[in-house]
Design a protein around this nucleic acid. Structure first.
Length: 214
DNA sequence: GACCAGGCACATC
DNA sequence: GATGTGCATGGT
């Protein structure tokens, strides 16, 4: 019998302690980072975010909207895919200003399901980016699934490696207490574990979960 | 020089 | 509905 997912959380938490996610100064910065980190090393994202900060582009969403796309792309160059991500940032910030409202008043009234659907309709925001924004920027109770989650838990036999995003998300949400703080910490711990051990080594004996393997 | 990193949209079958 | 491909930098 496999250890419950909540048990895995406890192992990780005992091993690593709190992760204090998301690494950003403001909720808006979380949203920008969520787009920039798509298939990209966080170190590269940090360089791009620092460029944006120096340019004053994170102090107000409208600065990003008024900035020429080429200039925006140049600033986020270190994060890779800079042309496509410049477009995605523009559409994401457009949504932030128009639909969510600058004071986030509208967002507060949206139910999470509706909020998620709205985010998914924005160009450049897919399931993981939407869920990262919902959880880490707005504190909504949504479990974030990423490549590490899929890789680690499929290797440990919890599901097939090609199981769909929504199925994996549902599995975690239905197996865990409904607690946004828990989801926050759990996803961060999974990423921490993935960075440490589960990159290219399928079975690493140093992994804190290795003794849980059947 | 190959391989990878906290995905997504779009084309094609 | 599933599968393949382009997007791009910087670290190991």
């Amino acid at each position: 019998m496999k250890k419950p997912l909540y048990g895995i959380f406890k192992i990780l938490y005992d091993h690593y302690g709190p992760q204090y996610w998301w690494p950003a100064e403001t909720p808006f910065e979380v949203m920008v980072g969520a787009v920039l980190t798509q298939n990209t090393n966080w170190r590269n994202v940090e360089k791009a975010i620092n460029n944006l900060k120096r340019a004053g582009a994170l102090s107000s969403p409208k600065k990003i909207l008024s900035m020429p796309e080429r200039k925006l792309a140049a600033l986020i160059r270190p994060a890779g895919y800079f042309n496509i991500k410049a477009k995605r940032l523009k559409s994401m910030v457009g949504f932030y200003v128009s639909t969510l409202g600058v004071g986030r008043k509208i967002a507060g009234r949206l139910k999470t399901k509706r909020f998620r659907d709205e985010l998914l309709s924005v160009n450049g925001i897919g399931p993981e980016t939407a869920d990262s924004i919902l959880l880490y920027s707005f504190g909504r109770r949504v479990f974030v699934v990423d490549a590490y989650t899929r890789r680690i838990f499929s290797r440990h036999g919890y599901f097939a490696s090609d199981l769909g995003y929504e199925h994996i998300r549902r599995l975690f949400e239905e197996s865990l207490p409904p607690d946004a703080k828990l989801y926050n910490e759990y996803h961060a711990l999974i990423v921490r574990l993935g960075k440490d051990f589960c990159r290219t080594v399928p079975k690493c004996e140093l992994c804190p979960l290795s003794h849980e393997r059947k």
